[in-house]
Each structure stands twice: as structure tokens, then as C-alpha cells.
Design a protein around this nucleic acid. Sequence first.
DNA 1: CGTCGAGTTGACATAATTCAAGTAAGGTGG
DNA 2: CCACCTTACTTGAATTATGTCAACTCGACG
Lengths: 252, 252
Amino acid sequence: MKGGGARVSTGCFAERFHHHVDLTAAERSALLRLEEQRRTYRRGTVIRREGEVAEELFIVRSGWCFSCMIMADGGRQIMRLHLGGDLIGASALAFRRSPVTLVALTDVVLCPFGADAIGTLLVEHPRLAGLIFALGQVEHVTLTDRLASLGRTSARARVAALLLDITHRLRVTGQADEDGFVLPLTQEEIGDVTGLTAVHVNRMLRALAEAGLIRREGGRLRLIDEAKLTALASYENRYAAMVADWLPDARS
Amino acid sequence: MKGGGARVSTGCFAERFHHHVDLTAAERSALLRLEEQRRTYRRGTVIRREGEVAEELFIVRSGWCFSCMIMADGGRQIMRLHLGGDLIGASALAFRRSPVTLVALTDVVLCPFGADAIGTLLVEHPRLAGLIFALGQVEHVTLTDRLASLGRTSARARVAALLLDITHRLRVTGQADEDGFVLPLTQEEIGDVTGLTAVHVNRMLRALAEAGLIRREGGRLRLIDEAKLTALASYENRYAAMVADWLPDARS
DNA sequence: CGTCGAGTTGACATAATTCAAGTAAGGTGG
DNA sequence: CCACCTTACTTGAATTATGTCAACTCGACG
């Protein structure tokens, strides 16, 4: 039930690529090399602070973390939740200093590697580099979805969209079933993702529950009427729709 | 004064890379090949509609356009303004259908090319592919900045941030001087970028003008007190800070 | 000269925040 | 095992930023 660690024999990053191409042995081992190192962080730890020099990228092996920005008035905006298999810190490919703060939401295991590993990949496994690029585009589009969510939808819709997003991402790795899932976010953190206050998040969650769209039992959260939630949030599941048929052949 | 077309002998996309690496002749011509085709659109034209099959990417050669999403209630969120030298439609690398609508804001000239051109670039000029990836990261970070802006800052701050962002981007290509620049956006469009209503944008612009931070003279807009604006918006100029020292060597 | 789109301005409505006070739950030390 | 503390969650009332509606001006354009 802990999740994330079940089928990792291939490496949890490689797992992503599976669905899109048949990896060659060389590609597979190149990806596994990215996950060779491990680093563990306790729940609540600040992994990296905004403005720090940061030359490493990470693959999330297990657990959740998030990247955020601290605002001038002390507020916080959570940019993205990072779940198992996610690549984080790619901004190191363009900036010396981290634009965001990285925080462990649960106990988390990260696999760090240097930016130059991406350079190597680019030369030796252009197809993999292309796939990573394509995955980056998926993230880009989900970010624009969130922009629309924050800019143009109501508080209920934003909360609903977040819950749907988490659900779909967990399903990819089989961590969410019909019984729902454990949400390791406080209402304040949900607010920091959605641009709301903790108080208002509370009200929206209750409204969704009263409307019979979700159910909350202990730490577990369950989506009852996903169709209505999806409509309410105008949510689009981008993770399912990815295709990358433009990729070059694997290097022989 | 029309802008964008001045120093294009190298190609306006290649122009971007100049600052970061010395391009080899082969690289330069590979980039120029991306700009071989031209397509012109009239101000106001919808170039591409959300949900349409879209296999092409574009480089903006001159003029402005924007990508947006139309919301269920008829509202609109502008995801990004695209200026000369920008690469747009990269989502075609991950999705068959366009997640956004693309609209010409002024008369605009675009250079279309297929996604497979990126595949070729990846194999033949990995360093260029890496640079494009790094530029993508810059965009990614500016998007997160906007997310923080929409989620956690006031209306004035959002408007100020937009004006600063446009200014910095225009300066890269020398289209904004101390006299300011021509803003081809209606207040409604500014609202659609910042997640506000046209009416409120109007009030915020006036407030900024009355506070002596900006000046509006005809269609021209001029930033008077950039320091105060920057503080007010907690704006960070990401375009200046990019470095990419992890790139592999150019293929010989 | 009339129409149309954009900008401006005021009065009013409302969604979301703030403040404040409480309850429930979990962890810790005695 | 209990008493205490802390952290998260709830809930209501007052406040505020932003949206809505509506009227009017202005300049461009045919």
C-alpha cells in the first residue's frame, strides 16, 4: 500500500517510456544509470531552496514532493506536485540557480544526476532525449491547464481539478483504485496549489462532499462522481493522450 | 519601427542561440532550414483551433500572436504571447491535437516545419536540440512565474508583471527603447492574459499611471519607474539569466 | 455622418479572504 | 495510561478585491 516501489525492476523513470516505445537494451541501461544514486529525505525537509546553486536533476523514486515559490508577503505558490517517476529540477538545464524551492511532502527517495548526463543522453541516445523532451511538453501543457484553472475558474473548479489531476497521475502507477487514495496534503497545501486560502479550500471540499462528488474518510479521499467533477473543473487528462511518432530511430 | 525584421540575415530563431554558443556553419544552416517556409496571417486570424490535428511547429518571424484556451463559460485564458523568434506549437511533439487556439494579434509571419525536423536535429545536431530544450526550460520557468502571479498576487501586480515581461522580451530584439513600445493588446486581451476583466485592467492601468509608474500616450506605453514596478510585481527577468554549459560539443 | 470597437467611469453584486473561536486527532513526556 | 501540546480541520461573521452591469466618450473607418 505504500506505493511506488512495486514494479521498479526496470527503474521508475524507464517505466514511463515503456508505453511509448520499445526500449533497446542500451537505452534501458542508460536510463537505469540515471537512477543509480539514491538520496532519502524526511517528510517536511527542504531539499533545495530557491536561489541556491543547483546543478543536479532528480528522478523521484518513491514518495511525494513539491516545488514552490515563496512570495514577498510570505505566501506560497506550489508549482507542481512531484510523484514517483517524475523528473524534477530540469530548470538546471537553463539556470545555475534554482527558481523554486523543493520540499518533501512525504518521506521521499530521489535519484540525483548531473545535467551533463542529459548531454550524454542527447548524443548517445537521441531517441531517449526526444522522449524526455516530449514528456516535458506534457508537463508544459498541464501547466497551461493550471494557468487557465487559476486565471479563469472558480474555487470549486480548481479544487476539483487538483483532485482529478492527482487521481490520474496515481493511476498511471496503480496507486489509486476505486477506494480512492491517501492524500498527503494539508488543506493549506491544497490552497497553495490552487491559489486559495486553507479556509476556503475547507469549504470547497465540504461543498464537493455534500454534492456527492467526493467522499472523505479519514486520510483517504475518494472520487464518487468523476464525470461531474471533470465537467465542473473542465479537466482534461493529458497524461493519456501523449503520442510521439516523430522520434528518430534508436541508435543501433 | 515595424520590428522583428531588422537583423534577420541569420534567421530570427538562430539569433536566439548566438548569445549562448558559437554556431558552426552546419548548425547555422540547419536552423535556417527551419525558417525556409513562410506563411502570413492577418491580424485577428485564428491560425489553429484547439482540438485540431496539428503536426507543425512554427517559428515566429515577425509580428505577435498568442495561444489561448476558450473556457466552458465563454471566457478565455491567454497562455502566452508569442513574439519574434519564438518557437510555438511544440506541444505537437507530444500530442496529435493542439491543446490551444493560436491567434494572430498583429499581422504575423510564421515559419512552419514538421515535428520530424526536430527528430533530425536531435540526431544530426544534438547540441542544437539541447539548446532548444534549454530554451524550453526558460519558458517553463516563466510559466511557473505566471502561475505564482495568478495564484498569489493582486490585480495590480499581475498587470505590472505582464508589462515588465513584454518589455524585457522586446528588448532582447531591440524593439523597446526608453520611449516605450507599442502595445498591440486591447485591455480585454490584457485581462485574458492576467485572469482579470477588461474593466478591472482599465482601473489597474490607470492606478499604475496615477502612481507615476507607467505612462500611456496613444498606443505607446512607457515604463517610468521600472524598479518600483519590478518590486510591486515581484517580477524576475528570466530571459537574462539563462546558461547552458552542460551541452555536448557540436558534431564535427 | 453614422457605426463600431475600445476605453472610461460609477454603482452595485459577489466570491474569496481575513479574523476569530472553536473541535478533533495525533504525538510526547510524565 | 493519562495529561498536555500541537497541528490540522471546522465554522461563522465581517471585510475586501474583483466582477458585473450599464452608461457614456472617443476616435477610426467606411
